[in-house]
């Protein structure tokens, strides 16, 4: 049902699939989850055996399933990325006001989003680079970060050009202020704490100093307590 992975092994740290697999380990059985468009959708492939998650897509479906077989799709059964999907047993359809009542009313357990930047205070920028000629488009991102109980970010630690994405202060327009709980990157799992970024786990073969050099704010080292969260 799913397309073959296009993942390539990372030279250093975790590959994209590895990050998604690592994040999936932290989602409890029975959670109601909204996966953002793009890379966050990978998480669904790596849910550990024995756990069932219920996926919400904000255009109006709870109990979303994977892509349909070729030719078996319905153009009016789509996800928030406007791609055709399927529905699982127990699925439900609803209108936009109800869908966002789920999000804004704190009923969803987890939102997984991509990021342009995350600040040490948990501010998220993921909808606009603020360029003058760009067409601004926000969709449901601001509602998700404001309303969902926990917000995980899945991202590369730095951009392809090597710019830091975990920063002291976001320079791009914000999606929300103090909204991110945890960041999963190719180099580390990082919690947002009242004291700033705290490393929970380092990718295999990656040391703390290497991650600090690629992070735009002070990183706190792992503690036994943080690692157990």
């Amino acid at each position: 049902m799913r397309p073959p992975s296009t993942d390539t092994p990372a030279a250093i740290g975790w590959s994209r699939d590895d990050i998604a697999r690592r994040l999936a380990q932290d989602i409890p059985h029975g959670s109601y989850v909204n996966l953002g468009i793009g890379i966050p959708e990978l998480v669904a492939r790596f849910v550990p055996e024995g756990r069932t998650l219920i996926y919400h897509t904000e255009n109006g479906l709870l109990g979303m399933g994977p892509s349909p077989a070729v030719g078996a799709g319905d153009p009016e059964l789509i996800n928030a990325g406007k791609r055709q999907v399927t529905m699982m047993p127990g699925a439900a359809f609803f209108d936009q006001a109800t869908s966002f009542a789920m999000i804004r009313g704190g009923h969803l357990d987890l939102s997984v989003l991509g990021a342009l930047q995350v600040s040490q205070a948990g501010d998220l920028a993921n909808w606009s680079t603020g360029e003058a000629d760009a067409i601004p488009a926000v969709g449901g991102a601001m509602d998700l970060v404001a309303g969902v109980r926990r917000v995980f970010v899945l991202t590369q630690h730095c951009t392809k050009e090597g710019e830091m994405k975990l920063v002291g202060e976001c320079t791009y327009p914000l999606t929300g202020r103090a909204v991110v709980d945890r960041v999963y990157t190719d180099l580390a799992v990082v919690d947002i704490t009242p004291d700033g970024f705290r490393v929970v786990e380092l990718a295999p073969g990656v040391d703390f100093g290497f991650v600090q050099e690629r992070t735009g704010a002070t990183l706190l080292p792992p503690t036994t307590r943080a690692a157990a969260v």
Binding site: A97, R104, M142, A146, G147, R177
Partner: peptide
């Protein structure tokens, strides 16, 4: 924001002139 859009429409239809939300703060 999409949820604010949906709620603004819902409110309009329900005779609610305005509401407060944390979305977009």
């Amino acid at each position: 924001p999409q949820g604010t859009l949906a709620e603004r429409i819902r409110a309009g239809g329900a005779g609610i002139p305005a509401f407060f939300t944390p979305t977009a703060v």
